[in-house]
């Protein structure tokens, strides 16, 4: 049953991902991307990481998709179609490289034998059980699953406190920098006008 559920989610997710990279219309591609994000959130639920699924929905489906949508609208008009988009010379090699990477990864997954006493990736069928009942100190994963928010919070405030603070600084820097970069100055050309910024002279030599 749970396998069927997984297959449904996975097929939906992969189809959305394919649609994202194949559809010409960028707004539709962004919608398909939101679908992919949601499928990934469902997989997180199947993996018993509901906290992360909630984060995924809030941040990816809620914020990132909207931000991308804004980017598309601002650069492309409301329709989001791109008349200038043309088939790329990279199409065939790109697809071949992608398929080769997938083949390599698939081979790697089933060929992995497990380090030391660990089991091979291909052989872990039922997930490691977590005992029910009282919480005892020796079972970190059970604690984590049953009380994900608390455990993640404690970890972020102890072991990963530097990474956590740095993430905050990173968001600040990204915000400040993105505003500074995208901020329109007075002497910049507005929409439709030709650019008044002189283009640089061409570079003479290049190998």
């Amino acid at each position: 049953m749970i396998r069927v559920l997984f297959l449904v989610i996975a097929v939906t997710g992969l189809a959305s991902a394919l649609a994202t990279v194949l559809i010409k219309n960028l707004v539709r591609a962004a919608l398909a991307l939101a679908g992919f994000f949601f499928a990934v959130a469902c997989l997180f639920v199947l993996l018993e990481a509901e906290f992360l699924a909630a984060l995924q929905v809030l941040i990816y489906v809620g914020a990132v998709s909207i931000l991308l949508m804004f980017g598309i609208m601002l650069t492309r008009g409301v329709q989001g179609t791109d008349p200038a988009s043309r088939p790329s010379a990279w199409r065939l090699p790109g697809v071949v490289i992608g398929l080769a990477v997938f083949a390599l990864l698939g081979y790697a997954i089933f060929q992995e034998t497990g380090l030391g006493t660990q089991r091979a990736w291909g052989a872990i069928d039922p997930r490691p059980a977590i005992a029910r009942g009282t919480v005892e100190p020796g079972a970190p994963r059970r604690r984590a699953i049953n009380d994900m928010g608390k455990v993640v919070g404690v970890e972020l405030m102890t072991r990963y406190v530097v990474a956590f603070e740095l993430a905050g600084l990173l968001l600040t820097a990204a915000l400040v920098g993105a505003v500074a970069v995208a901020h329109r100055e007075d002497d910049e050309p507005s929409r439709g006008e030709p650019s008044r910024i002189p283009s640089d002279p061409p570079i003479t030599t290049s190998p």
């Binding site: 990963y160 990474a163 740095l166 990173l170 820097a173 990204a174 920098g177 970069v181």
Partner: peptide, 18 residues
């Protein structure tokens, strides 16, 4: 690796913008 990844990103994202 967590700290390594996030500090790598911190460095490069600031440099993209600059």
């Amino acid at each position: 690796l967590v700290t390594l990844f996030i500090s790598l990103e911190m460095m490069t994202i600031c440099l993209y913008l600059a």
